[in-house]
Amino acid sequence: MRINEFNVGDQCLFTKYLEKNDYTSNLVSLGLLPGTKCEVLAFSPLKDMVHIEFRGNSIALRRKEAACLVFKSLTP
């Protein structure tokens, strides 16, 4: 699943990166690794930005750019 398919308040697990570039390696430094638990905190008005939290980081990403991140749902 991609991050924009979740709802505010959902918990999910990060599973893998589909690309490798400067953007993803920054996320690696921040600790977004396979198996990291994330929570979706908010979406911007047109849902094109997402505010997520993992490992105590509170980070905003763009939906389009985050399309290379794959997540797994934790909330049934």
């Binding site: 570039n21 400067d22 953007y23 920054n26 996320l27 921040l30 505010h51 980081n57 509170s58 980070i59 905003a60 990403l61 763009r62 750019e65």
Partner: peptide, 9 residues
């Protein structure tokens, strides 16, 4: 450019 924006407490 791709964006990773911290949302500080």
């Amino acid at each position: 450019l791709p964006l990773i924006m911290e949302m500080p407490a």
